[in-house]
Amino acid sequence: MPPAAASSIIRAGAGTARCVAQPSQVPVVASFSTTASRPKFTKARRLFRAWERADGRVFRRHAGEKPSYLPSRRREDDTDKPFPLNPYFKSARVLDERAREVVWEKIMRDGETIKAVSAEFGIDIRRVAAIVRLKEVEKDWIAKNKPLAKPYAKAVLSMLPTHRINPNQSNEPFEAINELHVHPYTMQQIFWPTSESRHFTREDAAEAFHPTLLSADKRVPHPELIQMEREVEQGRPLWDASERFKQAVMESERRAAEKQVAKTIHEEKKTTRVNTERFEFRFKQFNSENVGLKGRSRSVVGWRYGTPHDDRSKGHQIKIPTSVP
């Protein structure tokens, strides 16, 4: 077979040449074989190891107090984006230990309201409440001598962008606190003819979307803050306006608490508790005849008995209109 022989000669030549070039990496194992053995690592693996030594080396051990994320391909100034391909996800700042302590002290020691602290430091209301709750758990652990994960906390906070609070001076806000949830009712386009002379406000817009929808001024988390700004616009001094804001916030929190208490009392009134050794039975009065207009109301007892589900039937229902458009 002359062609095979020729090819083997050529291969032998190539193999020996490689052997000369890299004698240590590609040893000829069998004396009769002239084919160079495969390199130790695949190409992908070699590239990975090269990256590990060069670009990836800085990520191996974290040093310093600043976060280190993968560099973005587009711009150099993107230092808060962990994913190079997704510019819309940013690593948000977190409150450091001292800031959390300050928030806890303001509420639990100085007796300030959650809304007032939220407005003062620019922290979301729910976050303020969560901080207090978590801080209470931490104090409980300390009181019980339960070990805290301090080295872990220190390491993680050094890797994250942190926000600090100085209780003695005005701080820049931590996050946007007056964010309005985009209600599905407001996501439609409506053609709403009105007279040109009409003063069409946010209240009217809300009613145009839906009769039960409240206006944006009432749906934001801090309506009292808007009122305060309005008073400042009207010429009231800032300290007075902020005092009034604090009063209003206190009042709104008191009202919310009262509502909660009233609800619990009402529930308690409706239930009869019977304590046995093992269980506490709770009985409530219900009228099973009260099943709503079609017998399918979801909030009443017994709605599922005897009423067939019509979620699968498509054309068989007789649709009687309940209102005249």
């Binding site: 191996r60 994320y69 962990p82 230990e97 801080k135 931490e138 994960a149 906390a153 890797m159």
Partner: peptide, 20 residues
């Protein structure tokens, strides 16, 4: 090792590392 580039906490969570 290689923990720092993955370190971020989304805004919908409030995390207390001390008590995990």
């Amino acid at each position: 090792n290689y923990m720092a580039p993955f370190a971020f906490i989304p805004q919908y969570l409030e995390v207390h590392q001390n008590i995990c």
